[in-house]
Every structure is written in structure tokens, then in C-alpha cells.
């Protein structure tokens, strides 16, 4: 973990509220799939907190890292990030969190399920790339409320290039891209077909999706890891704001999403009571506040 002043290489709108930020980080560290950084425009104190963002893609250069972040403009912090131009400075604290774990490839079965909703999709790209490298065959199920007429769905073109078009299945609630409906229905029918039996499942998305994914993983006996989000002040374990209830050593306790997470085994998560959210944006709100 280190805090460095990075330089913006490129920061542009993809479509709608989705933006892609490319930065040069003058440091060398390894980033595990699912790890994140805490980001703010350099020395900017309003709003007071940094934003948590998962590393989308990372390339190692001679004296630096080039990293990409995908974010959704939803509040003051992300609006400010969208103002950044090439050459601007930003503070990047990272890499943070535990990241996903990839088990040994079993003797039988190489299929892996990746499930994402909305702004959850960037958490799965580095993971998908590493799974491919290790000889697994990941299939991505991705859903969003709607799509863009020209650009389709956020990040999906990158996954097409990585996994092949037939290994990316999409759903939109308005039916404008892929199947109409929610991504968990896509996942469920794929699992029920019986022809495809993933040896592992990884997911990142809004809470209703994650709860359903956890149920399906349990029902079909698939080991699952879910990347959660939580309101976070520091990102490195001191504020104790981002706690999640989990089962640990036979008891139920709070652990920090930033340090013990953000990735948890599905069976360890103790879900809180649902809250009816009628916000116009909905979905994942944090990390893109």
C-alpha cells in the first residue's frame, strides 16, 4: 500500500454517466484482481473523502504503472473526478483490499461464472484475464438497466475481446441490449440447462443481484466469491466505517470491507434487511458517490 501522486493520461465519458479514467502511477506494485484504490484530485478537501475504485486494467511500464478505472458519475466526488483533464494530478492510495482468490484447476471442469451488474463489471476484468491465463474458461453474465445506442454496455467490448462474443451474455431491464430482464435470470437458466457446470463463481453488483447470486451458488453447489461495497472513509482499515456482518470461526461478527474484503465467500456473508430504494439511479451507489 502506498499513496502517490498520479498523472491523468486520459479521462473521458464512455456514455451516459459512465466514465473511463486512465492514469500514470509513478510506482511499481502488483495489483491482484479485485483490489482497489482510494482516489481524489490532488490536495482536494471538498468533498472530504476519497472515492474507492477498483483497478480495471493495469499495465506495467518502465518506471510506472498505467491503470484504468471505470466510474459512474453520481455525486459531488465523481462529478469532480469527471472534471480532471490530461496532465492533472490525483492522489492514489493503493493497492487496497484482499482481491479474488483463484483456486487450483480441478481435474474435471474449467468453466467459471462471472456475474456483474452495472458499475460492478470493472471489478471482474483483471480476474477474467488471470482466469484465462490459468486455463479456465470464464463466461460473463452482465446486466444493466439500459444500454447506449452506439456504445452498447460499459466494458462489454473489452470482455468480448478477452473472452470471445459467445462467452459474454448480457441482459438489460429495458431490453435495449441482450435479453430483457435481470442478469440473475440469465445465470439461472444457464445453470438449469445442465450442460454448463462452472467450478467457481465470482460476482460484483448491486445488493439484490448479489443476494440472488449467493442463493444460486448455494443451490447449485458452486464455490462463490462476491466483491461487496460499503460506505468507506479511509480504505485502509482505520475508520471502521465499512463493516460487513460475516460468519467467522463459528460466530457472527463485523469485519472491514476495505481490509478483510471487499471479496468474501458467499456462504460467509450475513445479509442485512433489504431497504427499498426508490432513487433514480439505484444500483451500486458507493464507489461512485
Amino acid at each position: 500500500m502506498m499513496d502517490v501522486t498520479a498523472t491523468v493520461l486520459n479521462n473521458a465519458r464512455e456514455y451516459g454517466d459512465y466514465w473511463r479514467l486512465r492514469v500514470k502511477i509513478p510506482a511499481h506494485y502488483a495489483v491482484r484482481p479485485g483490489q482497489f484504490a482510494m482516489i481524489r484530485p490532488s490536495a482536494q478537501w471538498e468533498p472530504i473523502l476519497r472515492r474507492a475504485m477498483v483497478f480495471y486494467r493495469v499495465e506495467h511500464r518502465v518506471h510506472a504503472l498505467e491503470a484504468e478505472f471505470i466510474y459512474r458519475v453520481m455525486g459531488r466526488g465523481t462529478r469532480q473526478l469527471a472534471q480532471l483533464r490530461s496532465g492533472d494530478r490525483l492522489d492514489v492510495l493503493g493497492p487496497l483490499g484482499n482481491g479474488f482468490t483463484i483456486g487450483e484447476r480441478p481435474a474435471v471442469g474449467r468453466d467459471v461464472a462471472l456475474v456483474s451488474g452495472g458499475i460492478g463489471i470493472p471489478a471482474l476484468y483483471l480476474l477474467a484475464a488471470e482466469l484465462c491465463q490459468r486455463g479456465f474458461v470464464p463466461r460473463l453474465f452482465h446486466g444493466d438497466r439500459t444500454s447506449d445506442a452506439e456504445r452498447g454496455l460499459i466494458c462489454v467490448d473489452d470482455f468480448y475481446a478477452l473472452l470471445g462474443r459467445d462467452h459474454v451474455l448480457c441482459a438489460t431491464e429495458d431490453g435495449s441490449y441482450g435479453q430483457r430482464g435481470v442478469v440473475t435470470d440469465l445465470l439461472e437458466s444457464a445453470l438449469q440447462s445442465g450442460a454448463w457446470r462452472p467450478v467457481a463463481l465470482y460476482a460484483c453488483g448491486p445488493e439484490p443481484m448479489m443476494k440472488r447470486v449467493a442463493q444460486l451458488a448455494l443451490q447449485f453447489h458452486i464455490p462463490a466469491e462476491l466483491s461487496l461495497e460499503a460506505a468507506m472513509a479511509c480504505g485502509f482499515g482505520v475508520c471502521l466505517a465499512c463493516v460487513q456482518r460475516v460468519r467467522l470461526d463459528g460466530r457472527i461478527t463485523y469485519v472491514r470491507v476495505c481490509c478483510e474484503g471487499p471479496v468474501f465467500r458467499a456462504e460467509d456473508i450475513v445479509w442485512e434487511e433489504p431497504v427499498v430504494d426508490r432513487s433514480p439511479v439505484g444500483g451500486m451507489r458507493n464507489g461512485a458517490r
Partner: peptide
């Protein structure tokens, strides 16, 4: 961090909210 005689679990989340010029917290002395 505030130290109590027995360990404390702290308050139910959400525990922070960002506000203009600051933030609200209700960690609950975990």
C-alpha cells in the same frame, strides 16, 4: 482508538455519511 474494558462490536452500518465540508460518523467505539 477509544479503549473499553471489553471489546466492542460497534454500531450497525451504515456508519458514515459524507456531508458538505465533512462527514457524520456513528462507529460506536468498535
Amino acid at each position: 482508538k477509544g479503549l473499553s474494558i471489553e471489546p466492542l462490536e460497534g454500531n450497525p452500518p451504515p456508519r458514515i455519511v459524507e456531508t458538505h465540508g465533512g462527514m457524520l460518523n456513528s462507529i460506536g467505539l468498535q
